[in-house]
Amino acid sequence: MTARTLRFKVFIFWVGIILLPATIWGQVSTKVSPANPLYNQNQFREAAEIYERAIAGGVENGHLYYNLGNTYFRMGSLPKAILNYVKAQNLLPRNEDVEANLEYAVRQTADQLDGRKPHVLESVLFWVGDLNLSEHRMALFWINLAFWVAMAVRLRHQTPATQSARNILLAFLVLALVSTGFRWHQETRQSIGVILPQQIDVHSGWNATTVVLFQLHRGSLVSISQEKENWYAIELSSEKKGWTLKSNIAE
C-alpha cells in the first residue's frame, strides 16, 4: 500500500464518518414520511404500521414515538398511546407537546395514575431528567475534551488560573459521568409499564391465591421493579407495591 493510497483511504473514512448521520437521517425521513399524511387522512391503522415498522427497524426517535402515541390515541388504544408518549418523553424530555399529550392521555384513564417512581438520586441530580441520554453523552464528550485540554495547557502554564480551570472541569467531568451513568441506568434498567386490561387485581405475591392488595385500571402507569416467572412486581409513586401477571402490562 503506497502512502497515497493510504491517505485516500483515510480521507474516505473521515468523509464517511461525517456523512453517516446525514445518511441515517435521510433513511429515517424516507421511512416515516408516508405515515404523516395517512394520519392526517384519519388512516390511523396504516400510519401506525409505518411508524411501528420504522421503530422495529432500529429507529429511535422521540418525534416518531410521539406521532405513534397520537396515532394510538386516535385509534382508542389508550395504554399504547401512553406507553409511546412515555418513550417519547425519554427522548424529548423538554418537549411541551409530548408532556401535554401524555398528561392529557393519563387524565383520560380511570385511575389518572402516573406511577413512575422518581429515584432518590433525582432530587440531587435534578438536571438529569431534563436531558436525554444522547445529550448527556454529548455533554460528557465536550467536558471530557475540555478537561484534557486544560490538563495539557497546565503542563506548560502552571498558574492558579489553570489550576482552578482544571479543578472546575474535573468537578464537571465527574458530574457528567455520574449523570450519564444514572440516565443510562434509568433508560435501560428501570422499566415502566402500562396496564392493559380494563381492571386488574394486584396481589401480595406472585400467585393468584395471594391477597388482592388493590386494583388498577386500564392505562395506569406503573414502575416495574421485579420479575418472577410470569409475574411482575409493580410499584406506584404512592409507595403501593404488589404483583400482577406480565400479560396485564405493556412495556
Binding site: W25, S29, N36, Y39, N40, V59, N61, D97, A100, Y104
Partner: peptide, 17 residues
Amino acid sequence: DILPIHTGAEVFESQAL
C-alpha cells in the same frame, strides 16, 4: 384534545447509538 403530530422531516433523525 391532544396536540397534533410532528411532521418536519428534519426532526426524524435517529437518536439511537
